[in-house]
């Protein structure tokens, strides 16, 4: 059976969804991700969907579930690279993906996760991303 590869990228796990999702693949991904979060102590999950031409409520539900499970395991989920046509359609469909965070691309998504781990753990973490783009402006988002 096909599986979607899960890559470790610093503090985060990166999943690039490139194929048309079907049930088994989605179920396998949920399971793989849950296992990897627990095993690696990852603080974030990036799901790159820039290759997806459509997102229906089935995939939407998958993203929501992954986000909910990750949250329980203390990891943020960021969906990155959603195409404009897909976003417009999702809004029309009535799917807002309230539980997930979003970013324009993987780099921005990494910055979001880095920001979170910086803010959450203060200075106690010697991780390598302290000087990354995440370092700028954490507190001004209240606007």
């Amino acid at each position: 059976m096909d599986r979607i590869p899960v890559l470790k990228l610093g503090d985060a796990l990166l999943v690039t969804v490139q194929v048309d999702m079907h049930d088994r693949l989605a179920a396998a991904l949920e399971e793989d991700l849950t296992g990897r979060i627990a095993a690696t102590g990852a603080k974030g999950v990036l799901i790159d969907i820039s290759s997806l031409e459509i997102v229906d409520s089935f995939i939407g539900r998958m993203l929501d579930t992954i986000a909910a499970v990750s949250r329980m395991l203390d990891a943020d989920t960021v969906v990155v690279g959603m195409r404009p046509a897909v976003a417009i359609t999702l809004v029309e469909l009535g799917l807002e993906l309230r539980g997930v965070r979003t970013a324009l691309n993987v780099e921005r998504g990494m910055a979001l996760i880095g920001r979170r781990s910086d803010a959450g753990r203060g200075g106690d973490d010697g991780g390598g991303d302290r000087d990354g783009p995440a370092a700028e402006d954490i507190d001004d988002d209240g606007g």
């Binding site: 459509i54 997102v55 229906d56 089935f58 046509a85 359609t89």
Partner: peptide
């Protein structure tokens, strides 16, 4: 998708009908 492209649909219209089809097929 192929039919929508053949009917000259723009990207957003294509995506909408394909997504609707996916929902109903499921």
């Amino acid at each position: 998708r192929a039919r929508a492209v053949a009917a000259g649909f723009g990207l957003v219209d294509q995506t909408k009908i394909v997504t609707a089809a996916s929902e109903l097929a499921r």
